[in-house]
């Protein structure tokens, strides 16, 4: 299925969901992505979801807060959320800003994200 200028797929056979964002997102699209992540994780009874943000050249307070909301909500339902692919310059900006992606697990890339979920 497609979500907000991204793609959400069931990662077979591991049973995790993978959402890869394809382009810059407006706040409206961020909300759509957040909501579809929550709905799809519940629908697929996923134990983990990976959100690939490598396409985002800006992660501001709104995106950060939305990802934290997804992670916190999923955790209450027994699912892990891993954000992968934060660009180096975006990571520096987030840390200057003070955005810590509260409650979110992070990994360098998709492969590392899957490893983290398998642990």
């Amino acid at each position: 299925m497609r979500v907000a200028t991204g793609e959400l797929r069931q990662a077979c056979p591991c049973g995790y969901l993978i959402a890869s964002i394809q382009s810059a997102l407006s706040d409206t699209e961020v909300v759509e992505l957040r909501d579809s992540l929550l709905v799809e994780v519940a629908r697929h009874r996923s134990r983990g979801v990976i959100v690939d943000v490598a396409a985002l050249d800006v992660i501001d307070s709104f995106v950060s807060r939305s990802l934290s909301t997804v992670a916190r909500t999923n955790r209450l339902r027994g699912a892990k959320t891993v954000v992968v692919g934060i660009r180096p310059e975006v990571a520096v900006a987030m840390s200057h800003f003070g955005l810590g992606l509260d409650a979110v697990d992070t990994a360098l890339d998709l492969e590392a994200g899957l490893e983290l979920l398998d642990r």
Binding site: D57, V58, D60, V90, A93
Partner: peptide, 27 residues
Amino acid sequence: GREAALRLGFSRTDATFVATAISEIAR
């Protein structure tokens, strides 16, 4: 904002700082 910063000689990191700040005040 990012393009302007890069044209003016800012690093990619500083251009990202500018773009992120613009995102907040535009919101």
